[in-house]
Nucleic acid binder design. Structure first.
Length: 399
DNA sequence: GATCCACAGGAAATAGTGGCTT
DNA sequence: AAGCCACTATTTCCTGTGGATC
């Protein structure tokens, strides 16, 4: 008599969205200082003055994007009631994996009238796309706040951040105002900027510090309240997730992931409550998921090199120097019917990248006249997991 | 102390794709 | 069609580097 869905009512989630990555909370917890600074920096907009440029710093998962979305919504509402304020436009652009040209291009496309066709993907110079941006800004008029998320992923940020904040003073635009809001996961980003850019852009800098365990617990308790059926989530689970994340990097996203996966684990086991054992089990799953995404982001050759290193690791042939890695890599590339890279240099480039990303461990060797100087690499991950993930990825692309 | 090995690391050149303007 | 342009991923070329060896 019981059908396949008969025990669905026992589900422990009430509103799982509250634990998803793109959930936007309607109130922001534990970021009062940052919000206050933010508010101050945005005040000019309310009086129709040129907005300040704002930079946000802080690791991933510290609420930079959430606070920004929150602030922009609030600002939009407030502007509507203020007679002095110009019409406000907020544009968000994610810079991950983009170039200056493509970022400005997406901006232009957002400003273009509905009927117009998109700005060309290629074929035009960066100056052209900026020119189009300015005419579109002036056509719209008003105040524009441009949010560049993950701005540190952009190479050649200088051009972008030099051009845009100055557009008005140089006379590229006259009927509109532009403010730049940059979001960076990288603290050293500031040092990479040219001095010219630094002083214009750095009118307001807000840095987000890691959450401590107490703050995380408050955030998690709030989310757990919404996400889980009442009373299902143990306080110990919240405390455990907060503790793990606080010890790692004070990352709220990580903590929330732990809670969500912990809930899934409990559900899979058929348990009616979520406790800290579930969170501990979730920790490994979350870590593995992270690693899979990071590996997936790598180019094919880099992935093949990771696979090569995993094999070498299994045979106890690590640490290995680039030459031996290369010969193994070639045969592995062949087995996947991929054209291998031909030069040693390109292998070394990839190895060096992978080392910088924390996938590989590297030893500096110097045997003087009888061996010279070279590096030896070994895998800084569990080889079995790497091989597993690799075959998962490989299986996805075949069928 | 000069020399030398076998790379490391950076810059520039090359190749290849796609697509614009004139 | 010619001449640019953006962008990516190599390859080629060049200039260190630093301890062992002479």
């Amino acid at each position: 008599m019981p059908g396949p869905f008969s025990d669905v009512e026992r589900s422990i989630f009430a509103a799982k969205e509250a634990l998803s990555e793109d959930y936007q909370p309607d109130r922001i917890l534990e970021r009062d200082d940052e919000i206050e600074e933010y508010r101050h920096a945005l005040e000019d907009v309310l009086f129709g003055r040129t907005p300040q440029n704002i930079m946000l710093y802080g690791r991933a998962g510290l609420g930079k994007t959430a606070v920004t979305t929150y602030m922009m919504d609030a600002l939009r509402e407030e502007v509507a009631t203020r007679p002095d304020a110009d019409e406000l436009f907020v544009h968000e652009v994610n810079c991950n994996g983009q170039t200056v040209y493509s970022v400005v291009r997406t901006l232009v496309n957002k400003l273009l009238p509905e009927t117009a066709s998109d700005f060309p993907k290629r074929g035009l110079s960066t100056a052209d796309v900026f020119e189009e941006l300015y005419t579109q800004l002036d056509r719209r008029g008003g105040t524009h706040l441009v949010v560049f998320d993950e701005i540190d992923h952009l190479d050649d940020v200088d051009t972008l951040l030099y051009e845009l904040p100055r557009a008005r003073s140089i006379g590229h635009i006259t009927d509109s105002k532009v403010g730049v809001i940059g979001i960076s996961n990288n603290y050293t980003f500031r040092q990479d900027l040219s001095p010219k850019v630094k002083d214009t852009l750095m009118e307001a800098e807000i840095s987000f510090s890691p959450y401590d365990a107490g703050e995380l617990r408050a955030i998690l308790a709030d989310r757990a309240d919404r996400a889980f059926v009442d009373g299902v989530c143990d306080e110990s689970a919240v405390a455990r997730a907060a503790a793990i994340a606080a010890k790692d990097r004070g990352n709220a996203r990580q903590a929330i992931d732990l809670l969500r996966v912990g809930g899934e684990v409990a559900k899979k086991h058929g348990d009616s409550r979520v406790d800290d054992d579930h969170i501990i089990e979730a920790q490994e799953l979350v870590q593995r998921g992270r690693l899979r995404n990071r590996i997936r982001d790598q180019t094919q050759h880099a992935q093949l090199l990771l696979e090569t290193l995993a094999h070498l690791e299994n045979r106890d042939e690590t640490p290995a120097r680039s030459k031996t890695i290369k010969t193994r890599y070639v045969s592995i590339a062949d087995s996947h019917i991929v054209d291998p890279l031909t030069t040693l240099k390109s292998i070394q480039n990839h190895l060096s990248d992978l080392h910088m990303l924390g996938f590989l461990r590297r030893i500096d060797r110097n045997r003087g006249e009888s061996g010279g100087r070279y590096y030896e690499y070994s895998l800084d991950l569990d080889p079995e997991i790497v091989l597993d993930i690799r075959s998962e990825i490989e299986a996805e692309r075949e069928p």
